[in-house]
């Protein structure tokens, strides 16, 4: 957590815009542990110190009050917050049973063009190595 800002400090964290495939460089301006704004990266060869409307202003979802903050399991049709342990045990149990009953290809994984390389690698590894299926795809073809 070296790059995380502490109370009373302002920091600029260099990262890449989360929207389109252009991959513009930008700094997140962090004040007191919150994102206070965005500044374009002037050294980036693609955006050269400029950004579009999403790059400048599309960061507020990060700290939106509607963010999910706990695992949810639907019980009697109602989403109920549970611990990670309970949620993962539930999913692991159901997946194991479905694999035993219907084979590995009864599982599909929709991966994410929004997540990092590392996360997508781990996701497909989960589908292939843990579940034993090649049923993994994402919205590249959409």
């Amino acid at each position: 957590m070296l790059s995380c800002s502490e109370k009373g400090r302002t920091e600029r964290v260099l990262t890449v815009c989360p929207y389109c495939g252009t991959g513009c460089g930008l700094y997140l301006v962090v004040e007191d542990g919150h994102i206070a704004g965005v500044e374009p990266d002037s050294l980036h060869p693609v955006n050269e110190g400029e950004l579009c409307v999403k790059g400048y202003f599309g960061y507020q979802h990060v700290e939106d009050p509607r963010r999910l903050t706990a695992p949810l399991v639907k019980k009697d049709g109602r989403f109920t917050p549970v611990s990670w342990d309970e949620a993962l045990n539930f999913v692991a149990g159901r997946l194991t049973r479905i694999r035993q009953e219907s084979g590995p290809d009864a599982f599909v994984l929709f991966a994410s063009a929004r997540a990092t390389n590392e996360e997508n690698y781990v996701a497909q590894k989960f589908a292939r190595a843990v579940m034993g299926t090649n049923n993994v795809d994402h919205c590249a073809r959409l």
Binding site: L95, E101, F107, F110
Partner: peptide, 9 residues
Amino acid sequence: VRAAYVFGE
């Protein structure tokens, strides 16, 4: 297919 896992989509 009986189970689907969707992340970030």
